[in-house]
Design a protein around this nucleic acid. Structure first.
Length: 420
DNA sequence: TCTGGGGTCCTAGGACCC
DNA sequence: TCTGGGGTCCTAGGACCC
């Protein structure tokens, strides 16, 4: 039996925990650059503000309803997420952290422990210890736990915890009430294709033959269909998975028209990406850089390009990655265009022993020591204290906008909550 | 005027090998 | 006139998730 605990309106909830006066107000949290709505409290959802909607499109609704607007504060959300997980770990030895606001876990088939009762206990404990309300769905597969979670969230009668029913009639009722595109793993596009062949709920999928699903779709969709029928195809992944790629990218606060600014942006992404990779102990075998113009400005010439190179031997050394990234960026750059976004991607990431090379005079031990010193200083004195000058010496026009960020209450001494 | 960032998996098609 | 069969590897693009 699987369970999925999902924090309700997570980012909006985090904003509320330390500012109780926001308790019943509509809240929205914005993406980087304060561009789109990425989280909404229930009140904001009720006002019709959509997920992913550009904030300038809902200015009127915000003003008319006194909606509280926040820039995203990942330092706060990540720390709150960690607290939620550690609360759950008090009851369950092994969990899979699926996302910043979702945790899967196994419920052992113990006779004297009703899974629903245990989950209710977890739910109330998390709320008491962290202030974050969670909904928990229980089912024989992860997909069904996810589906049950949707019921736990939507149906006020079930009190935030819902177990996918055993009884056939109930099961069909719940499946029939789940629109096809809301099944985990089937989004809008697959949903459309299902509707074309006359299937518009989860029940319809369960009633199809597996071979028919395979012929219309791919194996991923087929697995989802099997999970909906109660055959597990996905295990609990409690060991942290080793990543295969890593991206650092940002839209610019203002359009970039000078190579000087672009090279600083690429440099800063390269530096951050390399730093992140070292923190996880990996090395990358390939580096890619991309630069984009503003795809929404149909009136301007578009230039969305990327270039990549092999890193041999695989590396996480900042100066190596920085030099290559800048060179790729320079090749991609076209003067006279207005750029909106740039990013750096590290891929072919490996951990542990790596392939060396015979033909290099680089001193790898020296590199490793230098990076270690730099990382230690930055951990101790704050991120970015020591950095290559290529990323720029002062905040400038391409930096991100974050006008409405709340304090990082739980992770900065200077920003601890105070009573007034 | 203003439109996010970070991942994974699968498939088709092209280039190449013998 | 008639032009094979069996592989691998890589990349781009499309789908999904949060």
């Amino acid at each position: 039996m699987y369970a999925l605990a999902d924090c309700n309106n997570f980012y909006a909830t985090c904003e509320r925990v330390f500012q109780p006066r926001l308790a019943s107000k509509p809240i929205i949290v914005l993406s980087n650059n304060d561009g789109c709505v990425v989280a909404r409290s229930q009140e904001a959802k009720d006002l019709g503000i959509r997920m992913g909607q550009p904030v300038f499109q809902c200015r009127d609704v915000i003003r008319a309803n006194d909606v509280v607007v926040r820039s995203s504060n990942y330092a706060l959300y990540e720390d709150m997420s960690r607290r939620v997980v550690s609360s759950i770990l008090n009851f369950i030895p092994d969990v899979e952290i699926y996302s910043i606001d979702e945790v899967f876990f196994d419920l052992p088939p113990v006779v004297d422990c009703d899974p629903e009762i245990l989950c209710r206990k977890i739910q109330s404990t998390v709320l008491q210890w962290t202030g974050v309300p969670v909904s928990i769905g229980i089912g024989p597969t992860k997909t069904l736990a996810k589906l049950a979670n949707r019921v736990a969230k939507k149906d006020p009668l079930v009190g935030s915890v819902y177990r996918f029913p055993n009884h056939d009639l109930d099961r069909r009722r719940v499946l029939a009430a789940t629109p096809i595109e809301e099944v985990w793993g089937i989004g809008r596009q697959w949903g459309k294709r299902f509707k074309q062949i006359g299937v518009d709920t989860a029940l319809g999928v369960v009633q199809m033959r597996t071979t028919d699903i395979r012929s219309h779709f791919n194996v991923t969709v087929m697995r989802t269909a099997m999970e909906l029928s109660g055959t597990p195809c996905q295990n609990l992944e409690s060991a942290p998975v080793q990543r295969r790629s890593l991206v650092r990218s940002r839209s610019f606060g203002r359009m970039v028209t000078r190579w000087g600014h672009m090279s600083q942006a690429i440099a800063s992404h390269a530096i951050r990406a390399a730093e992140k990779l070292r923190s996880e102990g990996g090395v990358a075998g390939r580096l890619a850089v991309f630069i984009y113009t503003n795809r929404f400005r149909k009136d301007l010439p578009q230039h969305c390009v990327s270039g990549s190179c092999e890193l041999l031997p695989s590396t996480n050394t900042t100066p190596v990655i920085l030099k290559e990234a800048t060179a790729i960026g320079r090749r991609l750059w076209k003067q006279g265009l207005q750029y909106k976004k740039a990013g750096v991607m590290l891929s072919e990431i490996t951990f542990g022993e790596t392939q060396g090379t015979l033909f290099s005079d680089r001193d790898y031990e020296h590199d490793a020591k230098l990076m270690q010193v730099m990382d230690r200083i930055n951990v101790k004195m704050g991120s970015g204290t020591l950095h290559p000058a290529a990323s720029g010496l002062k905040r400038c026009s391409w930096s991100m906008q974050q006008e409405y960020r709340s304090p990082r209450y739980t992770s900065r001494w200077g920003e601890l909550p105070k009573t007034i």
